[in-house]
Amino acid sequence: MTYEFDWSSIPGAVPFLIDGMVLTLKLLFLAMAIGIVWGTLLALARLSGVRLLSAAAGAYVNLFRSVPLILVIFWFYFLVPFFLKAITGDAGIAVGAFYSALVAFALFEAAYYCEIIRAGIQSVPRGQLAAAYATGMNYGQAMRLVILPQAFRNMLPLLLTQSIILFQDTSLVYVISLSDFLGAASKVGTRDGRLAEMYLFAAAVYFVMSFAASSLVRRLQTRFAT
């Protein structure tokens, strides 16, 4: 007996799948934005001369890089409401799967962004900081105006590559029943008994989008290199 592929459930499900992709992209861009800001602060902490601060940031990075992402998603889904209840005493606060997933991704990815940005800061010659200080800038100004712009520029390809990985990782939210793109595809497949087709279709969409994005990164890389 051979399996007969039947793709007919896709056209009717397009609006639902688009809703799923919108959620995926919302999660991606918000987690990227928060993750990069938090990762930058962590990188500055790791490189700071204050030993306690750099040790704390180092511990954070090592912790998040040593646990599976899926566990972090679970933790936040189950623990955040628990903590909120403990803090506010109000049992009725609903964080929602989306926000708990967003917090989990942002905090998790920040650990990776931190290491990329730290390498970026270290790639800027030390004399640049001296030059900024010599004109009377304080630490914050020197970092914001002179060092970080160069660090981000040097690390842009790596930051984007990490974000493509994040795009793929957002599919893990199916474990907390969020209807992201994969979640939506899976629900349609289950409803119509066409899981194989829907998973193949989802894989194709993830592949096309990730491949397009990484080709773009490569082009950017060669343009910056010259």
């Binding site: 010659p125 004399g127 640049q128 001296a130 030059a131 900024a132 200080y133 010599a134 004109t135 009377g136 800038m137 304080n138 105006l145 002179v146 712009p149 160069q150 520029r153």
Partner: peptide, 29 residues
């Protein structure tokens, strides 16, 4: 920072900011 703002310094390796135009380099501080 206030003291340094009043003392000019020129370095062996120039240390101009490579991500800014010449004009922006001179205007920044």
């Amino acid at each position: 920072p206030k003291l340094r703002a009043g003392i000019g310094m020129v370095f062996q390796n120039f240390e101009l900011y490579p991500h800014m135009s010449v004009l922006a380099n001179i205007c920044l501080a």
